[in-house]
Design a protein around this nucleic acid. Structure first.
Lengths: 129, 129
DNA sequence: ACGTTTTGTGAAACACGGCTAACTTTTAGG
DNA sequence: CCTAAAAGTTAGCCGTGTTTCACAAAACGT
């Protein structure tokens, strides 16, 4: 199955949390995304079926394939947030709205846009959201 | 009820088609958006309830309120398409992907982004998509 | 004016992604 | 240990937005 927007969000949050914490549990993802643990449970099941994550006894981690997507999403997130912030949008609004923009473009288009606009640095997920 | 992404798409397409054709029927919207006429029928019912469109015997047209949204969406559409095309994305991909980007930002953020990046001209809906 | 084709609508179903509630399993404190 | 809290799962529901299929209503050609 193709990855949907929400799936990409889950992968991205697992990536961010694993950079921050090392081990990521479902409950962490739920808190990070502001959804219930039941929703995470469902999502993880389908993401595991599609080969994007693996669920250990008490943790979730990205597969190679999932990591690739997650990093890409994070890259885009940073790009759009940075762009919006430079335009004068407040940090939290930029983060919120960037979250949606990051799903709109194909890999190819995104690279072209970034090449034109610059701003390539990726923020370290470790500190703030 | 608040307008969803799909509602905005319907309004925008009614706007574009009415600029091109004058009179817009459900079937035109269906073809333009690539959905079934049943979908349009349903969508029009809820958009009419919310005061965005009015349905005549054999046409649909935007209310004042609907027109405002539609124009705004079209403006954004043009902005993002233009941006992507300048970045080297092909016209049809740009149009496709711009269709999604146009729903991501608040009015405020969009204006800031446009102020920073320029490219304010709005394309006349009359010719191509 | 009639029948055919086009257009619009209604009902039922599905996918998706969320929720709550109830349950099970794990973890961890005393 | 053993129990209480935390974490995870399962089942069932809801809203949104599609679809298909059957049908109704208009429009149109001859």
């Amino acid at each position: 199955m193709a990855l949907r927007e929400s799936g990409e969000d889950y992968l991205e949050s697992i990536y961010v949390l694993s950079e921050r914490q090392g081990i990521v549990r479902s409950i962490d993802v739920a808190e990070y995304l502001g959804v219930t643990k039941a929703s995470v449970s469902k999502a993880m099941a389908t993401l595991e079926n599609s080969g994007y994550v693996e669920m250990g006894k008490r943790d979730v981690h990205l597969t190679e394939r999932g990591l690739e997507v997650a990093r890409q999403m994070w890259e885009r997130h940073c790009f759009f947030v940075r762009l919006l912030e430079e335009a004068g949008v407040s940090a939290d609004v930029a983060s919120q709205e960037g979250c949606h923009m990051e799903h709109c473009l194909s890999e190819e288009s995104f690279e072209k846009l970034r090449a034109m606009l610059g701003r390539d640095e990726v923020t370290d997920p470790t500190p703030g959201a």
